[in-house]
Design a protein around this nucleic acid. Structure first.
Lengths: 239, 239
DNA sequence: TTCTTGCTTTGACGCGTATCAAGCAAGCCC
DNA sequence: GGGCTTGCTTGATACGCGTCAAAGCAAGAA
C-alpha cells in the first residue's frame, strides 16, 4: 500500500495500478514511464480517429465519451469513461486511433506511452498480464453492448444503462442512487441505439412509474430493484 | 518463408504466424507451445461461457460462431470465425470463457495455452506485440459491429454482412462473389440484430433487384458495387 | 415411396420506435 | 430586460421491422 502512494501519486488509477501487485521498485519503473497528466476542457478532443497512435490514456478525473463516425455523419458513441478507465486500446492494431475521445467535462488524464509500457511488460510479468486482462475486459464489455443493441427493447436498454452507471459510480465511492448525467440525451441515445426523444420519453415513463426522479441531468433512483427486474431476464447469463 | 513451413506445419495460421516475422529458433519455440489441433463435429461446442479459461483457439479449418446468451434465453451471436481467426480472447479477463464457441461445420482448431504464450511473449517481443495487436483488432471489430447494430437499417446491415464475408473469403483465396453461407438465417439475424424473416425478406429483395442470386445457402453477388454503395454512407469513416 | 424434421419463404397484421413539429425552460449575450 | 441559443419534453403520425401463421422445399428415416 505504501508503494502505491509512491507510484500512483500522480495518477489515481485504481483500476490500472491496484490489482497488479507490484513491488516498490517495479512501481518506480512504471512511474518513470507514465507521463504527467494532461488537462482538457469540456468538449476538447483527447484524440481523433485516424490520428497516429502513441499512447493509451487513463482517466484521472472527469468524464469522456468515445465514438466512431460513419462517412455520412452518423455517430455511434462506443462508451463513456470515468476515472480509472482506459481509452485508446483500439489504436494498437493499426497504429492509428480508431475512434474519437472527447471530454464531457473538464478532465484530466494520464498518458501511458504504449511502446514503453510494452517493454516494461516484458520485465514485469504481472504488468503484462494486467494489460492483457484490461484488453480482454474491453472485449467483454463490447460483447455485452452487442447483446444490448441486438436484443433489448428501449426500456431495457435504458434501465441497463442507468444501473451500469450506478454500479460504476458506487464502485468509485459516489452515491449509487443519486447522480448527475454527464452526457446529453442525444449521446445516451447514440450509445443505446435510440433517438433522443425515445430516451426522454422512457425516462419520463420510469418517473411516472415512480422508479426514479428526473430533474434535467440529475437522476435519483427510487426503486432500483424495479429497474434490475426489468433487465434481469435480458442481461447476460451468469455461470 | 522457410521457417514458416517448419513452424506452422501443423497449423495454417496466416493471421497468427505470418506477420510476426519470427526467426527459425523463435518459430520452434512457438511450435513447442502450440498443441496438436483438435477436431470438432458440426454443432459441437469448443468451449462454453463460464468454463475455465486456459487456451485461445485458432481456427485451422471449418467455421465457428461465438455467442452470448441472456438469462431468459435470448442469444446474441457475437461473431463468425473462419480459418486463421482467433477465439477466446474474452476469457482472459476473468479466467472464465465469456461466450460459447460452436462449430458450424466439421472443423479443426489449434489450441494455444495462454499462460505459455504469455511467457513466450516476454522472450519474443514481436510475438507479444502481435498478441496486443490481435486483441486490439478484436476491439476494433466489435466497435464496427456496434456501429452496425446502433445505426444501420436492415438492408444496410445485411449488405455490410455479405460484403464483409466476401472480403474475408477472398483474402483466403476463395471466390469473393460466389460462396456458401455456413450459418442459418436465424444465426445471421442474431448477429445482425434482426429476425430471421427479415433476413430472408431482405435477401429476396436484393435478389429481385438483381444484385445477387440466392439459392438456399448458396449466394452469388452479381452487383457487389450496388451493395457497396448501400453501405458506403453508413460504414465507418476512413481517415 | 411416404412421413418426418428442420429450415426457408411469403403474407397479413400490429407494435415499437423514428420522424416531424411545437412548446418550454435555462443559460448567455447584448 | 429582450432576444437568442441549446437542450429537453411531449404529442401526432409514419414506417420499419417483429410477430404470427401457413405453406414450400430439401434431406433423411422408416
Amino acid at each position: 500500500m505504501h508503494a502505491l502512494k509512491v507510484s500512483c501519486s500522480n495518477c489515481s488509477l485504481r483500476e490500472l495500478c491496484l490489482p497488479v501487485g507490484l513491488n516498490r521498485d517495479e512501481m518506480a519503473q512504471l512511474d518513470a514511464v507514465i507521463r504527467q497528466s494532461r488537462r482538457l476542457k469540456r468538449g476538447e478532443y483527447l484524440f481523433r480517429s485516424g490520428e497516429g497512435f502513441r499512447s493509451l490514456y487513463a482517466v484521472r478525473t472527469g468524464y469522456f465519451k468515445t465514438c466512431v463516425s460513419s462517412q455520412d455523419g452518423r455517430e455511434q458513441v462506443t462508451g463513456f469513461h470515468m476515472s480509472g478507465e482506459l481509452m485508446g486500446l483500439d489504436g494498437i492494431s493499426s497504429n492509428l486511433h480508431g475512434c474519437d475521445a472527447i471530454a464531457l467535462e473538464d478532465s484530466e488524464v494520464c498518458e501511458l506511452p504504449f511502446s514503453r509500457m510494452e517493454t516494461l511488460g516484458r520485465d514485469i510479468p504481472s504488468l503484462q498480464h494486467h494489460f492483457f486482462r484490461l484488453m480482454s475486459r474491453e472485449i467483454v464489455r463490447d460483447q455485452s453492448v452487442m447483446l444490448l443493441l441486438g436484443n433489448m427493447k428501449a426500456e431495457e436498454r435504458l434501465a441497463a444503462f442507468l444501473l451500469n452507471l450506478s454500479q460504476r459510480l458506487s464502485a468509485r465511492g459516489f452515491a449509487a442512487n443519486d447522480f448527475i448525467l454527464r452526457m446529453s440525451r442525444e449521446e445516451i441515445g447514440s450509445f443505446l441505439g435510440l433517438k433522443l426523444e425515445t430516451v426522454s420519453r422512457t425516462l419520463s415513463k420510469f418517473q411516472q412509474q415512480g422508479w426514479l426522479v428526473v430533474d434535467h441531468k440529475h437522476i435519483q433512483l427510487v426503486k432500483p430493484e424495479e429497474l434490475k427486474q426489468l433487465v434481469a431476464g435480458c442481461s447476460q447469463a451468469q455461470h
